[in-house]
């Protein structure tokens, strides 16, 4: 039975952020900006982890994933090495609708900068004037900066702690851009849900259309379970098949945020367990 895909390379971008290139020729060929995959570190017990495709190389037949170790499952994934096998399903979700809107502003926060990059590039290729706002907690977590700077006509960088660029949240420069005349024709915001919520709130008074890419809890990723459902403008939508991108002004953010927290307690316990295991492993390695 053919189930798994080989990891070609792995690089640690910061303490918590990893970049993996995985052999997946069909996905590399079919994927478009905005789509994601579901990854499992084994066939028996792994959780199904949705990760946006950061890049793909159809000639090499590989895709690139960038992820942050936020819980037990992403930690286990990060332990895999080149040559190891993982399960990858995709490409999932609808591609971003790309056209020449005029002036496009792409806002990325933390790990969200990874999925933002292919969208920014596609918007640029379609003829848009492109402004990119990159934000992160601290300098170390700013990723994809070279790539984004290369495609952006204007690149604004902010950090929460001021360790790089401006000391601000992404919403500050976003608001300034909205105040220009004419305002942006489209904003695409990808990052932590709370950031996307505030980006949508920032652009709403200006009537600037704002797309967000939702990262809900998922199981199958094929529309089979409804675990990923969100309320968008009074309608129930399945993020994995109807999304992942939605009009940020229509998303019921409070409901989406509380649904994201459904398993917080179990996740914390598992995460702590995972840290313990890793510490034990390092101890054992040091001893032997």
């Amino acid at each position: 039975m053919h189930v798994t895909h080989r990891i070609v390379s792995k690089r640690q971008l910061s303490e918590e952020v990893f970049r993996m290139e995985i052999e997946a020729p069909y996905i590399a060929q079919e994927r478009k900006a905005g789509q994601f995959v579901i990854v499992q570190y084994d066939q028996e017990y792994s959780e199904r982890i949705p990760l946006t495709i950061a890049d793909a190389d159809p000639d090499r037949g590989t895709i690139t994933l960038i992820f942050q170790t936020v819980g037990a499952s992403t930690h286990r994934l990060a332990l895999k090495e080149p040559g190891d096998e993982v399960i990858v399903l995709g490409p999932l979700g609808n591609p971003t609708h790309i056209e020449n809107f005029g002036w496009a502003v792409c806002v990325g926060g933390g790990i969200g900068l990874a999925p933002l990059y292919p969208i920014a590039r596609a918007l640029k290729d379609a003829g848009n004037r492109l402004t990119v706002i990159s934000g992160a907690r601290t300098r170390d977590l700013l990723i994809m900066q070279e790539e984004l700077a290369a495609v952006a006509d204007e690149h604004i960088v902010v950090t929460d702690d001021g360790s790089f660029g401006r000391k601000a949240l992404v919403t500050a420069p976003l608001e300034e851009l909205c105040r220009r005349t004419p305002p942006p024709d489209i904003v695409v915001a990808i990052g932590p849900p709370i950031m996307m919520k505030f980006c949508a709130q920032t652009t709403r008074p200006f009537g600037v259309k704002t797309l967000v890419s939702l990262n809900t809890i998922m199981i199958d990723g094929t529309g089979m379970c409804g675990g990923c459902r969100v309320t968008v403008g009074d309608k129930v939508k399945f993020v994995c098949v109807d999304g992942p991108e939605f009009d940020g002004h229509l998303v019921d953010w409070d409901n989406m945020l509380s649904r994201l927290g459904a398993y917080r307690q179990q996740e914390q316990t598992a995460h702590e367990q995972c840290h313990l295991e890793m510490q034990l492993r390092t101890l054992q390695e040091e001893r032997s």
Binding site: E44, E47, R48, G226, G227, T231, V236
Partner: peptide, 20 residues
Amino acid sequence: ENLVGVFSANEYLTRANLMK
């Protein structure tokens, strides 16, 4: 129906069976 704690049977059973 979108409150935390409402599941489709598909989701509940998939978590329990397929995902063990």
